[in-house]
Design a protein around this nucleic acid. Structure first.
Lengths: 208, 208
DNA sequence: GTCTATAGGGAGATAGAC
DNA sequence: GTCTATCTCCCTATAGAC
């Protein structure tokens, strides 16, 4: 939802004034993409909220494609850095399950309350023309690598299923964006619930 | 992917010739929405593939909104009827887990190989303006009711978590649309994998 | 850096002939 | 039922002054 200036600056010190303007435009674009989708947001919408006319945007970004690619790449970068930082804060001997729960919490935090970039990415990835989706794939693959490592211990004997399991986990976490109440306060409870579903056995009786 | 005429007619006998034309247009629209998203598909695209000019479409549907609502509602109706039929085919004394696995398989089947309507619904729901999304909610709630019943036994002492758990399950199943290889032949294996992740314990050691 | 003016195209939709 | 012709609107993007 709302990004605190702190949460934003954490990931990118804006040195020059020109750079600050560029980041301001990106912030506005990410927020609009997140709430209204890709095609529904026009360059005019973004310009208006930035207090300028449409053509002025083209001084900062050569095209709408370039703007949306910048938003998409930052979206993955933020969640990757958030998850990596949370994992680094764990004791070095932490087991597979606490590491998974920690990563899951960090991912949901980035997605739901930290970054409009991450939620915009999840929201509009499927709406982009194929060329723009492809541009985001390197970032996505780098993030998936983290979850490959986290989930490897759960695929003990069958590492061939690992890529699909990574996709199931990331897909399940991202899907919470579509139905969770935006006014929800207890993100911790959602994370715990998701961890329970994905990591624990839900039923005792396994017979027919 | 491809819909067999059989799979389509199963859910709607087209009595008159006019009705058949209407259904043909809906089929084309669903297939395009499924592959290219909502905003990217124009009335012209649909008309061209139906072998007519754009204005002729407006004889069958008063607006693009009406057309897309018809596709969306059918998308949920198909998956609901598919899952309900699969559950009805089970022995009456089937336990909670086999019922869940059966429903999960039927859902993935409708989503991945039976119906362009269901996959279009999942794909474009998040792209629609709020008014169109709201129009699809009654259908969605009717479908969620099935999963509420299926998942109730997994929420033994805490039925308050049931709605969220329903959303987690449906979200996780639907998320497979975004990353699964369209040429994938072994849908059974995907369903089994998803069932394992959602229903079984993935890790033995639960310590820190 | 931002502006006014505008090009150029595609969208949804309507009028009215056939 | 389908057509041609057209309206209106909004989009991305560019030209060129300031």
């Amino acid at each position: 939802m709302a990004q605190t200036p702190l949460a934003q600056d954490e990931f990118r010190p804006a040195s020059t004034a020109g750079e600050a303007r560029r980041l301001q435009i990106l912030d506005i674009a990410a927020r609009h993409f997140r709430t209204r989708g890709y095609a529904a947001v026009s360059m005019r919408d973004i310009a208006t909220e930035a207090g300028m006319r449409t053509p002025s945007l083209y001084y900062h970004f050569p095209s709408k494609d370039d703007l949306v690619i910048a938003v998409m790449d930052r979206g993955i970068a933020v969640v990757r850095e958030t998850v990596a930082a949370a994992l680094d804060a764990l004791p070095p001997d932490a087991g597979a399950k606490p590491r998974l729960v920690t990563a899951l919490r960090a991912h949901l935090h980035a997605l739901h309350s930290l970054s409009d970039y991450t939620s915009a990415n999840v929201r509009i990835f499927g709406q982009l023309p194929e060329a723009l989706r492809r541009a985001n794939l390197p970032e996505r693959r780098a993030y998936q690598a983290i979850w490959s490592e986290l989930l490897a211990p759960t695929c003990a004997a069958e590492q061939s299923r690992l890529p699909e399991r990574v996709a199931i986990f990331i897909g399940a976490m991202n899907a919470t964006l579509e139905w969770v109440d935006p006014a929800r306060t207890d993100l911790e409870a959602l994370a715990d619930h998701l961890a329970q579903v994905l990591l624990d056995r839900l039923l005792e009786d396994v017979g027919a």
